[in-house]
């Protein structure tokens, strides 16, 4: 039987809770931009952190459960579909970029932030079946770049100051 690493499990649970808290807190922060659907994406800090510290599958689980739970608790089916698509693509992109080992943490975060918005826009395009909405591509990518940059540097600071061994070691 596969041994369950309790410490790891606990840290994952805490990370999910932290990510959910972030996505709740940022829903309270108003963004004064004339573009619909712009958010800070603070929860991405946690997902990226998990991606750096845990196995890809575990990081995916943390992010996916976060999206599912906060979608059910604070959102509606529409927003759930949007954030789900955003998460899936941004996670995939961040995973690929992290594996390539050619990019820094802020770089990975920026790519994730941009592709999150790209996926959401594509999702909105399908739901609304409107091609004209694609005009938001550039502003949303600029926003994704800025928020991704902020999140990336926060994530980098946390990552550098954390005792990795203590987080994920056996025992």
């Amino acid at each position: 039987m596969k041994r369950v690493n309790v410490k790891r499990l606990c840290v994952m649970g805490v990370l999910i809770a932290a990510a959910m808290l972030f996505s709740y807190v940022e829903s309270l922060v108003p963004v004064f931009l004339p573009i619909p659907g712009v958010r800070l994406g603070l929860a991405n800090i946690v997902v990226l952190l998990a991606l750096l510290m845990f196995k890809p599958g575990e990081a995916f689980l943390i992010g996916f459960i976060r999206v599912l739970l906060s979608g059910i608790l604070f959102g509606n089916p529409f927003s759930l579909a949007m954030s789900c698509s955003g998460f899936l693509l941004s996670f995939l992109v961040m995973y690929i970029f992290k594996r390539s080992d050619k990019f820094s943490i802020p770089g990975i975060s920026i790519a994730g932030g941009m592709f999150h918005n790209v996926a959401q826009l594509l999702c909105a395009r399908i739901i609304l079946s409107s091609y004209g909405i694609m005009i938001y591509m550039f502003p949303l990518c600029v926003v994704g770049c800025i928020t991704g940059c902020i999140n990336g540097f926060i994530c980098k600071m946390i990552f550098e100051r954390t005792d990795k061994h203590d987080w994920i070691s056996e025992g």
Partner: peptide, 15 residues
């Protein structure tokens, strides 16, 4: 890194 800036540039131009 330098790669990051290249990546950002390409993505922004595409969008």
């Amino acid at each position: 890194k330098k790669n990051d800036y290249i990546l950002i540039g390409i993505l922004l131009i595409l969008s």
